[in-house]
C-alpha cells in the first residue's frame, strides 16, 4: 500500500453519467491482489472537502489502474473534469478481494456505481477462459456501456426496460441457475440491490460474496468510521469495510 501522485492517462465518458479513468500506477503492482480492492482518491487540493473518496479498482494491467465511476455529486463531477496529463493523489491498494471457488460457476452481478469490482472480475475470468455469467443492472439503457451477449451469459437489465431485460438484476438469475445449479454469486452495487441478492441467495442456499461501500475517513483501519453491522460474524458486532472488507460473505452482513 502506497500513497502516490498517479499520472492520469485517460479520462472518458463510457455511458450516461458513467466515466472511466486510467491512471499510471506501476508502483502499486506488488500490492495488487485482485477485484474487491480499492483506492482512496484525493479529489481536490482544497480543504472544503477534507476526506479522500474510496473508489473500487475496475482493472489493473501493465501498471495501469482503471476506475469506473458514476457522476452523482460535486466530487465525482470534479473528477470527470480532470484531464489526461494531470496527476491524482491516490492511496492504495486497500481492502480484500472476491474469492473464486473452482468448484462453483461464478455469477457476477453489478449495479450502478458498484460495477467496478465486478467488471474487473469479469475481465479476469474472461482472460483466464473461465466460464461465468455477468449481469449488469441500470436504471435505463443509456447507463450501460456494453451490449448484452446472451450466448456468452452477458446480460443487461434496466429498471425502465429501455435495454436488455426489464426489471432488476434478479430477473435473469433463475434461468442462469437452471443451467448452472452449482453456482456462487459475486456482487457489488447499491444497498437495496445487495439486500435483495442476500435474500435471494440465502433462500436458494447459494454461497455469495458481496462487496459493500461505506463512508470512509482513513481507509486504514484507524478511524473506525467505516463500521458496518455484521451481526456477530467474525466475532464482532461491527466490521470495518476498509480492512475487514469490502468483500464479505453475504451471510455475515446485517443490512438492518
Amino acid at each position: 500500500m502506497k500513497q502516490i501522485d498517479a499520472l492520469i492517462v485517460a479520462n472518458r465518458q463510457l455511458a450516461h453519467q458513467i466515466w472511466q479513468m486510467e491512471l499510471a500506477a506501476p508502483d502499486l503492482a506488488d500490492d495488487i491482489t485482485g477485484p474487491g480492492q480499492f483506492i482512496e482518491i484525493l479529489i481536490s487540493a482544497s480543504w472544503e472537502k477534507p476526506l479522500r473518496r474510496p473508489m473500487s479498482i475496475a482493472g489493473y494491467t501493465d501498471g495501469k489502474l482503471t476506475i469506473i465511476y458514476k457522476i452523482f455529486g460535486p466530487s465525482s463531477h470534479q473528477l470527470s473534469q480532470r484531464a489526461a496529463g494531470d496527476y491524482l493523489s491516490i492511496m492504495g491498494p486497500l481492502g480484500n478481494t472476491f474469492t473464486i471457488n473452482n468448484q462453483l460457476f461464478p455469477i457476477l452481478i453489478g449495479g450502478g456505481v458498484g460495477l467496478a469490482p465486478v467488471w474487473w472480475l469479469h475481465r479476469k475470468l474472461e482472460a483466464a477462459g473461465t466460464a461465468h455469467a455477468l449481469i449488469l443492472g441500470a436504471r435505463s439503457g443509456e447507463e450501460h456501456f456494453i451490449e448484452s451477449q446472451p450466448d456468452k451469459n452477458i446480460l443487461l437489465t434496466t429498471d425502465d426496460g429501455s435495454a436488455g431485460i426489464a426489471g432488476t438484476v434478479l430477473v435473469p438469475l433463475p434461468a442462469i441457475l437452471a443451467n448452472n445449479p452449482n453456482s456462487m454469486v459475486f456482487s457489488c452495487g447499491p444497498e437495496p440491490m445487495l439486500r435483495a441478492i442476500q435474500e435471494f441467495t440465502a433462500d436458494k442456499q447459494l454461497p455469495a460474496q458481496l462487496s459493500v461501500e461505506s463512508y470512509m475517513a482513513c481507509g486504514l483501519g484507524i478511524c473506525q468510521g467505516c463500521a458496518i453491522k455484521t451481526d456477530g460474524a467474525r466475532n464482532k458486532p461491527f466490521s470495518l469495510v476498509c480492512t475487514d472488507g469490502p468483500v464479505f460473505d453475504a451471510g455475515e452482513l446485517d443490512f438492518g
Binding site: P50, L51, S214
Partner: peptide, 12 residues
C-alpha cells in the same frame, strides 16, 4: 452503530 462519520464543509 453506523453511520459513524460524515463529511461536512471543511470538516467531518
Amino acid at each position: 452503530p453506523p453511520p459513524r462519520i460524515v463529511e461536512t464543509t471543511g470538516g467531518m
